[in-house]
């Protein structure tokens, strides 16, 4: 039987704002399947976002949803989780939102290892404002503010998250639709900060400036650059040139922040 997405969508709030060919809808479907798999209750779940195309996602899904200010989603989400740890808290957003203006909040949420699941849709461009380069835009790529090619080095979000202390870090692409929900579900089950980066495509703001003739070309690229982390173990550095690793890249157990704070409460109350 076909999966019933509508039970999780808000009636009257579609169509979404995303352009034809944008991968965000694929990720939203994966997110819905993952939340269904994990049995998240609508009333007990909060989905928080910042600003940008990806940050419009929460408006379409029927949970407690909070569309905050640019970059601030992880900090708002931290307040929700800290005040009501029994809630399931997710963050959804893009690359500019998450690791440029929101970079400080991103790394500190990772460091605290607070129990949230952060789905970062990385389309390596500021789409909503018309295609300016982000910290994830490839070197040399064209954006509306890099007319001569991007001189800026690129963030590796997964490495950033691991370095900052996230205890679950995974990556996939919008092409690998079935892997999206599996990784998000694994992140939801993980106790602690889970980062799931989904490489996505923006045909409107990125593709047309960077010689992608069609959305299909962009999808093919996502397929070609992705290498499962297990397969990568048997590949040479030359073979891995220009590739990105996918799957669960990092997982460890470390005390979760809200549980740690319960010990503070116990100490303060003299238990």
């Amino acid at each position: 039987m076909a999966f019933d997405y509508e039970q999780y969508l808000r009636p009257g709030k579609l169509p979404h704002i995303w352009c034809p060919g944008c991968g965000h809808g694929i990720v939203m479907k994966g997110l819905i399947r993952a939340m269904d798999t994990c049995g998240l209750e609508k009333n007990n779940t909060a989905i928080v976002s910042g600003i940008g195309c990806a940050s419009r996602l929460p408006g379409y899904v029927d949970f407690n949803t909070l569309h905050t200010a640019h970059g601030r989603a992880a900090a708002f989400a931290t307040g929700i989780k800290m005040a009501k740890p029994e809630m399931d808290v997710l963050v959804v957003g893009g690359d500019g939102d998450g690791v440029a203006i929101g970079g400080n909040h991103f790394i500190h949420a990772c460091r605290r290892n607070i129990d949230m699941t952060y789905v970062l849709l990385n389309n390596y461009i500021y789409g909503m404002t018309g295609g300016q380069f982000s910290p994830c835009t490839p070197v040399g790529a064209k954006a509306s503010t890099t007319p001569y090619g991007n001189p800026d080095p690129t963030f590796d979000i997964a490495k950033l998250a691991i370095g900052a202390g996230a205890t679950f870090v995974a990556r996939t692409t919008a092409f690998h639709a079935t892997q999206i929900d599996k990784l998000i579900a694994a992140g939801l089950r993980h106790k602690g900060m889970a980062i799931i980066e989904v490489l996505d495509d923006c045909p409107t703001a990125y593709g047309r400036r960077n010689k992608f003739r069609s959305v299909i070309d962009m999808m093919k690229r996502l397929k070609e650059i992705a290498v499962p982390i297990k397969a990568a173990a048997h590949m040479t550095p030359e073979q891995l040139e220009g590739k990105v690793l996918t799957g669960i890249l990092h997982q460890e157990e470390r005390p979760e922040y809200c549980e740690q704070y319960q010990q503070v409460i116990a100490s303060a109350q003299g238990d």
Binding site: L66, T78, G79, I80, M82
Partner: peptide, 8 residues
């Protein structure tokens, strides 16, 4: 941001 999240 944290206090606004908590207030909600």
């Amino acid at each position: 941001a944290s206090i606004l999240g908590a207030s909600l």
